[in-house]
């Protein structure tokens, strides 16, 4: 339990650091982005929006500490001000609508990618020296491809040329959003290509990591002993080799997850998927700083939660960490 407590403390600290970073960055950036942005709107911004923008960049009559306190206040109330890219929508509303899409897509894809990659990696490590070795360069190539480019190719082949799947979007506009069969079916249909892209591009990383750990684990004494015990091969592979080889995949989850999320964001843009990635793209185009900040915070918090889950899973998988 102590280890979990320490982990939670660490993630709280990290969250604090990220949120504070988000406060600091606009204030230390050179130039005067607030004026630029206000000029872009040619006076169409409401006075309150202009004021909020100046506050974001630290142009305020309050001192830095007061600004920091009110910043935290807005973080906890979810009040990130007005979006400029989706003017006059509130940032929280824009995110509320898009978050669900991204969360579902990335969760499903991460789990799929992890399971498939780890399973293939286990086999490739177990059968080291056979044809399965050729999986390594193949998946290396796949994971070296930029996600968004792979997405473009997938769209070109499956949506434009073969017309198997819809070109872009998250669901057919003819359906009404809600828990009805038609909408869910359509959402799945629209999600196939983005999901395919993310899974295929992320499998390689898991595969190679798992394979190398598997090969390393196979020369451990306990695997040799398991063989000497005359256990069935499957038992040796799963219970002795793979279970131990998997552990680093969990402790390295953070880095891989960040990578997958980064890739997914850009993938959404290609598919014009109604998730956070597409919103971020629009926000970046329109220099919508409030929206970008909020997205950064949101993604960071989600990643931290995912990492905490991975850490908890690790504690369950490896009894050695449970030691006090």
């Amino acid at each position: 339990m102590r280890i979990l407590f320490r982990k939670i403390c660490f993630y709280l600290l990290t969250a604090w650091a990220a949120i504070s970073l988000n406060f600091v960055i606009p204030r230390i950036m050179p130039g005067n982005p607030a004026d630029n942005l206000i000029n872009q709107f040619h006076g169409k911004l409401s006075p309150s929006a202009v004021k909020a923008l100046r506050v974001l960049f630290g142009e305020s009559d309050k001192n830095l500490w007061q600004q920091y306190v009110s910043y935290w206040h807005s973080v906890f109330t979810g009040d990130f001000g007005t979006s400029y890219a989706y003017y006059p929508s509130q940032v929280s509303d824009v995110l509320g609508q898009s978050m669900f899409w991204t969360l579902t897509l990335i969760t499903v894809c991460t789990v799929l990618g992890f399971v498939i990659g780890t399973a293939l990696g286990m086999l490739a490590g177990w059968k080291r020296g056979t044809w399965l070795d050729s999986l390594v360069p193949a998946t290396t190539f796949l994971s070296s491809i930029p996600y968004f480019w792979f997405a473009i190719m997938v769209v070109y082949v499956f949506a434009i040329t073969l017309k198997w799947f819809p070109l872009s979007g998250g669901y057919a506009v003819t359906e009404t959003i809600g828990l009805n069969g038609g909408f869910i079916g359509s959402a799945i249909n629209y999600a196939v290509l983005p999901a395919l892209t993310i899974v295929v591009a992320s499998v390689g990383g898991w595969l190679i990591g798992m394979r190398n750990m598997m090969v390393t684990t196979l020369s451990e004494d306990y695997v040799r002993l398991a063989e000497a015990k005359g256990l069935p091969k499957r038992r040796v592979m799963y219970a002795y080799a793979a279970r131990n080889a998997m552990l680093p995949s969990f402790s390295g989850f953070a880095m891989s997850l960040g990578f997958v999320i980064g890739g997914s964001i850009v993938t959404e843009v290609v598919f014009n998927y109604p998730g956070i990635g597409s919103v971020l793209f629009k926000a970046a185009q329109a220099a919508d700083y409030p929206l970008m900040s909020a997205i950064f915070l949101l993604i960071t918090v989600l990643v931290l939660i995912a990492n905490l889950i991975a850490d908890i899973a690790y504690v369950f998988l490896d009894p050695r960490t449970r030691e006090s």
Partner: peptide, 14 residues
Amino acid sequence: VLPSLPLTIILAAY
């Protein structure tokens, strides 16, 4: 553990 691409995007955008 900070997701690097969103952070990069924020920094690059500023």
